[in-house]
Design a protein around this nucleic acid. Sequence first.
DNA 1: CTGAAAGCGCTTACAG
DNA 2: CTGAAAGCGCTTACAG
Lengths: 338, 338
Amino acid sequence: MVTMRDVAERANVSIATVSFVLNGTKRVAPETRARIEAAIEELDYKRNVVARALASSHTRILALLHPCREAWPNATGNRFVMSAANGARERGYDFVLWPLNDDEQMSHLLAGGLVDGVLLMEVQLRDPRVDRLIASGLPFALIGRTEDEELPYVDMDFATTIDQAVEHLRSFGHRRMALVTLRMKDPAGNEPGWITRVKSAYLDAMAALGEPATVITVEGSSAGGREAARLLSEDFPEATAVILVNERASAGLIKGSRALGRTVPDDLSVISAATSAELGEMIEPSLTVMAAPAGQLGRLGVNALIDQLEGAQDAPPHVLIPCTLVPGQSVGPAPIRQ
Amino acid sequence: MVTMRDVAERANVSIATVSFVLNGTKRVAPETRARIEAAIEELDYKRNVVARALASSHTRILALLHPCREAWPNATGNRFVMSAANGARERGYDFVLWPLNDDEQMSHLLAGGLVDGVLLMEVQLRDPRVDRLIASGLPFALIGRTEDEELPYVDMDFATTIDQAVEHLRSFGHRRMALVTLRMKDPAGNEPGWITRVKSAYLDAMAALGEPATVITVEGSSAGGREAARLLSEDFPEATAVILVNERASAGLIKGSRALGRTVPDDLSVISAATSAELGEMIEPSLTVMAAPAGQLGRLGVNALIDQLEGAQDAPPHVLIPCTLVPGQSVGPAPIRQ
DNA sequence: CTGAAAGCGCTTACAG
DNA sequence: CTGAAAGCGCTTACAG
């Protein structure tokens, strides 16, 4: 293994000077620098990240924590991760995904000194992981919000997204619209904050319109989607439109409705929010979608984290970004009925 | 920050003894051990992973490298990752996903001393990353095979999978079957090894049956699937069945065929191999699928890697696992025609 | 502009 | 069974 000492010897300098060149932390005479750079080149020296981390107490590694059990989110999640990784890299940080099963593993990671900062996804309103993060003293940024909105976060703007979905459906003449979302609780019985926000945005919108509201929650799967179709026809048969915020149930909802004799969009319009254009494309008829701003969230999240690490004195960022409407063929004029 | 020294002082021992207890590397008297464990508990001491890594030159971290650009694989890839992560954990290793953009980043990782071993996905027949891995001296295991089949790998058994798909279609009376697979090259013009293997397994099977063969390669997207439907009707209109090995084109192929007036499965049977039951469920009609053995591959891959790290003297593992048939509604009797 | 030296928090022969 | 001490490969005041 080539070490800094080897480089120093070859360039006839001390290891301190090599370090200065490598990190740009101090002026070094041009000729000296050239000699050192040549030695580095010739020896193909790479600095030992572990030793550097121990000496400097920084690793320049950022981790995205995510639950190991959960299905990995698909096109949206992927885009999020990639843009976060690229954003990190552009600012000179490594970025890793760290699947975690339990609290024990999380403590291990937080205390181990291996990462400089953490990005947390799928944050819940009262999230014990956030408490742990705070306790650990490690810098972090949240993708999603807790109850305590003082903490730094970037998040989808669910209120605006739902309002726009409602507006879009209204422009097609729909008045009775149901919300279909995800049934999901952690062991402690908490649901992700975004589900809570989606529900209340929907209820607010319906209240403002003076229309009746029905919220259907099903699991995130094809079967869940079919169940939603059934519940919809039982509990809210007057609905002519559905706002769907449950990506994995999308296909099942369409299939299930068809099986119950309601075709999309003739009998029922569907708009799938917080998802991706790719998903819309996969389904027949192509879904009208509100595409999640995954790329932006990834970049903003990682930048917020790095700003913090590098001691930007700004207030912690609170960023909300709405989804973008991508029209498909699943929304049509409201059917006339009595 | 609580260090080993704090623990040692509180327990009235040397830091060496604390280390022995922590690592179980040496006998320690029961009373001493108890004192130390109590101190660890009371101080909530966690060992500094970075310092340990520098001193021992092991981090007990394994990395799964994957290209940062690529779409993240979906249910199959997810299952693979999760089982690898859990497998690693069970043997006392951390497991991270490391998105990489380029060779520079790879060298940085390999030389940095941060990971003990590496799992490489989407291996190509001639894969420069593998050369780099070998040069780095880091232990690794491949998910997929290079040309040089001496290297340790675990992989899907494409030959068996294709044979079983063919057999399944034959049992429905099909004789003319096309292969639709993925068009994908890296910058150097190499295609992933699995694509090459799928093609030759298909060609071999058709040759053995004395049936004509047509291979259609399209990009992995809805549009690609529709293009495949078009190419199929132009280039091989006699085909009554398609073996599809291009997960993301599945939906488009069905949609595109329907648009061209061929319904599935009445006019055309489709079997989607190396994918997941979840995907099959999403599509209308539900796809008959050959589900990838993602969970097994993840576990076996990580175990092969750890065996190597821990110096098992066995020959490097060469494991092949076929997909599993999950019948859906996209395969039906071959239509009678002339 | 450069270097000698302490120190980051551990592990591990070695000695007793 | 336990400890004193060297050493892992860097960074970083401090001195010159």
